[in-house]
Nucleic acid binder design. Structure first.
Length: 124
DNA sequence: TTTCTCACA
DNA sequence: TGTGAGCA
């Protein structure tokens, strides 16, 4: 998914009333899931909770998990696992970048650029 | 009017 | 998880 689209999905623009209608959850439930750490909506200057499309998707997913018999703790673990996997993916990408960089360095050997100069232009 | 926090005949 | 109180 394009990062710009991901950013749009992360924009918190819905008040709890809208989320209630779109997810068919009560305000009580939505706030409770937040207390349990399942979602972290933003707050306005007036302390109003504001939700993003991603929050909406997560709430709908939480509903499905609950229907399937999972308890709040299990769902929380699932999201913590996803967070870990996401971070590991980042590390993997970084390692891949490093390998590509070293590979490029080898290709540059014997040519006109020096490793130090190349490294100065690398962006990771 | 809507949302917030807190508390429980 | 529901519901009502008292605010902002």
């Amino acid at each position: 998914m394009a990062r710009e689209k991901e950013l749009r999905r992360s924009l918190a623009v819905f008040p709890i009333g809208t989320v209630m209608k779109l997810t068919d959850l009560t305000a009580r439930q939505i706030r409770y899931y937040e207390d349990q750490g399942l979602i972290q909506p933003e707050r306005t200057a007036g302390n109003r909770r504001m939700y993003s499309l991603n929050d909406m998707d997560r709430l709908l997913e939480i509903k499905d998990f609950l229907d399937d018999g999972y308890n709040i703790a299990a769902i929380k673990r699932e999201y913590e696992e996803r967070e870990v996997r996401a971070q590991q993916k980042q590390v993997t990408l970084t390692d891949a970048d490093v390998r590509r960089i070293l590979h490029d360095e080898l290709l540059q050997q014997g040519r006109f650029t020096t490793p130090s100069q190349q490294f100065g232009n690398l962006r990771i």
